[in-house]
Design a protein around this nucleic acid. Structure first.
Length: 493
RNA sequence: GGGCCGUUAGCUCAGCGGUAGAGCAGCGGACUUUUAAUCCGUUGGCCGCGGGUUCAAUCCCCGCACGGCCCA
């Protein structure tokens, strides 16, 4: 603990309070009210109405401001719902309470009870008949007017951010609401919420670098999951038919405004559905959420209006490459020309990459960012989709879509590959990729193939990046603004 | 990994070769209806860390750490 004067002063106050017999950390304060309810219920009542109330009110929260006049003071109390002004006067409080009040600091957690009135300036205020210290604060809070703006401190000491910046608290309240709405929607559509392993012997279900760990008793390496996919499909095979999971995935990759090593994903699987069914399902889900939180289907993200009104645009990868990346059908059909195009576009590719992979590299480089309004991109190449069902009309394509909004991938969905023989071939192709140096390629997973050999019903599944969705719906520029404790490098002191 | 930017009082920020300033917070005083209360007085700094240049470095140069944005 650093030795600064502000701390010393508070420690001296603590000594004085203790000497006077004050408990600094009592645990018996039971506030009967919250600031928002008082404002909602009595905000419209005039002075005469308030004077007739016989009821007492009590609040507890953090002391955020003190405007003192010597024998009286106005203070602001902040609880989880907001702030309310309280009036503290020497001739109303007991002598003991008033002397305790005089030793309080901004930042202390206090309990106040009394009655409501309106001040000269007509502000609804709680007139304190008793004041108690509930928990002493010995460190000074950030400044009252500018709040806390230092980004590093905001992330490392999120409690200060939440205390000082009401807008931050609102984002996390909205995050919780959105996830609640998603659960509501899934429950209404008869999906079962399940939990599958976070620690897996093989990190499957996606292409990404995993975190590795080790179980001592089993003396076995384990990986933090990069996706729950293969486990959820085991449940579908087991007959649960419609399942979803909202939880963390872990990917051992870079950190950016759109990537946190641990992030929240919802994956869900619906038997007897196809990826096309999931497009309209996704439209309905997003529209439901938007209506609940905005009351409409359009909203602004970072200055651009996003309109979620269905149906959303559906665009095949190849059409996107022609229309947006400016490729000719000839360049697309000829692998050598496609490689040239990719090189010119600045893609990091290898000669040995399969054509589908080259095309997707061009897509990532040239198309992604331009898909601002919600767009389902469809007709993905088999080479980049080892778990998706082959298209009935073209065996080089799969029944898959990715949803793009505001230039970012928000969701990924496909009709599931349930043919074990084809799945084995796909894994084998991934193994070749791995041998060619792609350490993100999917591993062979015999146990999963064995599961498919029991027969998995035709199923469609989807993963929705919850953090990215919440960024959109809270107009947040960085994923760190929607994750309470984003990963930062540890500070060594 | 690369480029650019930032790091000065508890917080928000000035200062940019001559050993540091404001506002808020704090502390002392006045004040019983304030709204960033007001008024008077006042404490507080390894100027991120380590080198270098210089008579002299918060300031210029190099390295490192942490963070931000962009790119890979």
């Amino acid at each position: 603990m650093e030795d600064n004067d502000l701390l010393k002063v508070r420690l001296e106050k603590i000594a004085a309070l203790k000497a006077a017999g004050t408990d600094l950390y009592p645990n018996d304060a039971k506030p009967q009210n919250t600031t928002d309810r008082i404002l909602q219920e009595y905000g419209g009542m005039d002075s005469d109405g308030l004077a007739k109330l016989t009821q007492k009110f009590s609040l507890a929260g953090r002391l955020m401001a003190i405007r003192s006049f010597g024998k009286a003071a106005f203070v602001k109390i902040q609880d989880r719902k907001g702030q309310l002004q309280c009036y503290i006067a020497k001739n109303i409080l007991s002598e003991q309470d008033f002397s305790i009040f005089k030793k309080l600091d901004i930042g202390d957690i206090i309990y106040v009870s009394g009655k409501l009135f309106r001040t000269k300036t007509n502000e609804l205020t709680l007139e304190a008949e008793s004041v108690r210290l509930t928990a002493k604060s010995i460190r000074p809070l950030p400044e009252k007017w500018h709040g806390l703006t230092d980004i590093e401190t905001r992330y490392r000491q999120r409690h200060l951010d939440l205390i000082s910046n009401p807008a931050v608290k609102e984002i996390f309240i909205r995050r919780s609401l959105i996830i609640r709405l998603i659960r509501q929607f899934m429950d209404r559509h008869d999906f079962l919420e399940v939990e599958t392993p976070m620690m897996q012997p093989k990190a499957g279900g996606a292409v990404a670098r995993p975190f590795k760990t080790h179980h001592n008793a089993l003396d076995q390496d384990l990986y933090l999951r990069i996706a729950p996919e293969l486990y959820l499909k085991r449940l579908v095979t087991g007959g649960l038919e419609r399942v979803y999971e909202i939880n963390r995935n872990f990917r051992n990759e870079g950190i950016s405004t759109f990537h946190n090593p641990e992030f929240t994903m919802m994956e869900f699987y619906a038997s007897y559905a196809t990826y096309e069914d999931l497009m309209s399902f996704t439209e309905e889900l997003f529209a439901f959420i938007a209506r609940e939180i905005f009351g409409k289907l359009a909203f602004t993200y970072q200055g651009t209006e996003i309109d979620l009104t269905p149906p959303w645009r559906r665009l095949a990868v190849k059409d996107a490459l022609v229309e947006i990346a400016g490729m000719t059908p000839d360049e697309m059909a000829d692998p050598a020309k496609a490689i040239d195009f990719a090189r010119n576009a600045g893609c990091d590719i290898k000669e040995t990459d399969p054509p589908g992979k080259i095309l997707m590299a061009i897509f990532d480089e040239r198309v992604e960012k331009k898909l601002i309004q919600p767009t389902f991109v469809t007709h993905y190449p088999v080479a980049v989709s080892p778990l998706s069902r082959r298209s009935n009309t073209d065996p080089d394509l799969v029944d898959r879509f990715e949803l793009y909004i505001s230039g970012r991938e928000i969701a990924n969905a496909f009709s599931e590959l349930n043919d074990p023989a084809d799945q084995r071939e796909r894994f084998a192709a991934q193994l070749k990729e791995r041998e060619a140096g792609d350490d993100e390629a999917h591993e062979m997973d015999e146990d999963y193939i064995r599961t498919l050999e029991y027969g998995m019903p035709p199923t469609a599944g989807e993963g929705i990046g919850i953090d990215r969705l919440i960024m959109l719906l809270t107009d947040s520029a960085s994923i760190r603004d929607v994750i309470l404790f984003p990963l930062l490098r540890s500070r060594t002191e």
